[in-house]
Nucleic acid binder design. Structure first.
Lengths: 152, 152
DNA sequence: TTATTTGTAATTTTTGTTATTACATCTATT
DNA sequence: AATAGATGTAATAACAAAAATTACAAATAA
């Protein structure tokens, strides 16, 4: 199949809206240009973020807004908006039920996988969109400073 | 993102070897019957587990052995043997480098994603193959007891 | 030396992801 | 109110990674 970057793209989208709001028109076309994906994909992601209460959009108007402060949106909020109930670690449910291992491995791993998944989610919940945006802006400043340096 | 069922199947394989060792011949055919996959897949997984030092096999002989005690093999050991460097959360590397967001999102998310990944891995490292096997055996005993009950 | 099995490579099949096409619906402007 | 430009969504095609299959050399054990 193909590896999904939807979570990564959704964070990109939110940061983009916050950083470029008021600067350029925020159409799905414009946003898609930054993510380098299709406008349809952007609109689909925005639909999921809207239903999760993270952004507000108006039908027909290219002007999405964040529905909350950037320090009130965690990466877990975004993850859940996009990935929903999808487990982080995939369990093989097609095993031989008549075997001691095949018949009990699912229930067993479900417990242990969940512990690891919760640990990751707790960490995602501690990271806010504001952290991501701050880091992006710092990295950009560093790039600009280095660029000026080698130009002299 | 997301992990295939190979991780799940590898744990299955190790538990199967431990539980059925000496009881039945442990050919890739037999093991594949419990996982409900192909013998070739089993041999591939066994190859990776062998190279990671978790099992010992002999070419031509259907008799794999665990290379360590079951409480000395953690789920993280198995995960790393199978998934190697593969990140738990996928970053979209194809974004517009001329955009502030598109040009810095990868480096930014790499840091934060890694924090979440480490949290999950630390938890996986605390769970041992012995825990998995104990849980499987307890669940089987419970099944057997319940089955006897409704038969009377 | 023969049957069985492992170890691997190469190829095909399967399946989830992304891209594309199409269009109804809404907004804003004239 | 008519038009241009946008969103929201469904349906379909194209694509890419995983799993299954096929094939066979090399090793073991009888």
């Amino acid at each position: 199949m193909k590896i999904s970057t939807r979570f990564s793209d959704a964070i990109h989208l939110l940061a983009f809206i916050h950083i470029y709001k008021g600067q350029i028109p925020l159409s799905s076309e414009t946003i898609a240009g930054s993510i380098e994906t299709s406008p349809v994909m952007v609109r689909k992601l925005m639909g999921e973020l809207r239903r999760a209460g993270l952004i507000e959009t108006t039908h027909g108007t290219p002007d999405p807004k964040l529905a909350k402060a950037t320090d009130d949106i965690s990466l877990l909020d975004v993850y859940l908006a996009i990935e929903k109930e999808k487990p982080l670690f995939q369990i093989d449910y097609k095993t031989n039920p008549d075997c001691i291992v095949g018949g009990n491995i699912q229930e067993t791993l479900k417990e242990y996988y969940n512990q690891a998944e919760v640990a990751a989610k707790a960490k995602l919940n501690s990271i806010k969109l504001s952290d991501v945006i701050d880091t992006i802006l710092v990295k950009q400043k560093e790039k600009d400073a280095f660029k000026r340096e080698i130009e002299q």
